[in-house]
Simulated assay, not measured.
Amino acid sequence: MNGIAAVRGRRGVSLVEEICAVCILVIGVFATFALIGLSRASVSSDSVKDAAAAQAQQLADNLIAQLSGKENIPAAIQYDASVGIHEVDVGGIRAANVGQPSSFGIEGFKRQFCITAETNDTDRKNDGYNITCRVYYAGSSYVQFHAYASARGNTDEAGE
């Protein structure tokens, strides 16, 4: 028996073992390439989402600049129900004023926003505008941004 065990120990690796080892190695290589592809797609998707978020932020900033210190929404960005949804220029960005938050999602407009006036009859210093901006990317995915613009601008009570 010792002679047979010694012969088997010196024989080396069988063809079946070699094929199994190569198959396991190939599976590992393909899995690695698949993970690299998925990570690239994830990074690309995040880049598109980040770009949409930057556009929403810029749109909100432009709206705040146009609304801050104003008692009425400027005609250039005001929603006009008789005209319906249409694109307007908001500080160099083309966007559609959809009128109210429930109207978001209108086809054909990548950048959408709505402005709602907020008034407080007893304390006029809180008057202003709630702004909601939405930028669509990758079909129906979107980034939404909320902001507030004071109708009193950046002045405080002591400075008036």
Rank of each mutant, 00 (worst) to 15 (best):
R11M: 10
R11H: 11
V16M: 14
V16Q: 12
V16S: 14
C20V: 15
A21W: 12
C23P: 00
I24T: 15
L25D: 02
I27S: 12
V29L: 14
V29I: 15
F33S: 13
L35R: 04
G37E: 03
G37Q: 14
A41I: 01
A41Y: 11
V43S: 10
S44P: 07
S47F: 01
S47P: 00
V48L: 14
V48E: 15
K49E: 12
K49L: 06
A51D: 11
A52S: 14
A54S: 15
A56R: 08
Q58A: 15
A60N: 10
A65T: 11
Q66H: 07
Q66C: 04
S68Q: 11
G69R: 05
K70V: 03
K70P: 03
K70L: 04
I73D: 04
I73Y: 07
P74Q: 09
A76W: 04
I77T: 06
Y79H: 10
D80Y: 01
S82T: 11
S82L: 10
V83F: 03
G84I: 03
E87I: 05
E87P: 02
V88W: 05
V90Y: 08
V90W: 02
I93M: 15
I93G: 11
R94G: 12
R94H: 13
A95Q: 03
A95I: 06
A96Q: 09
A96P: 12
N97K: 01
V98H: 02
P101I: 04
S102H: 00
S102R: 07
F104H: 03
F104S: 09
G105L: 06
G105M: 09
K110R: 15
K110G: 05
R111Y: 13
I115L: 04
N120K: 05
N120Y: 12
D121H: 01
K125A: 05
K125N: 07
K125D: 08
D127V: 06
D127P: 05
D127Y: 05
G128C: 04
G128R: 02
N130G: 02
N130I: 00
C133N: 00
R134S: 04
V135Y: 01
V135H: 06
Y136C: 01
Y137H: 11
Y137M: 03
G139C: 01
V143F: 10
V143I: 09
H146E: 12
A147W: 03
S150F: 01
S150L: 05
A151Y: 00
R152T: 12
R152W: 12
G153W: 05
G153Q: 02
N154C: 10
T155I: 14
D156T: 05
E157Q: 08
E157K: 10
E157H: 10
A158E: 11
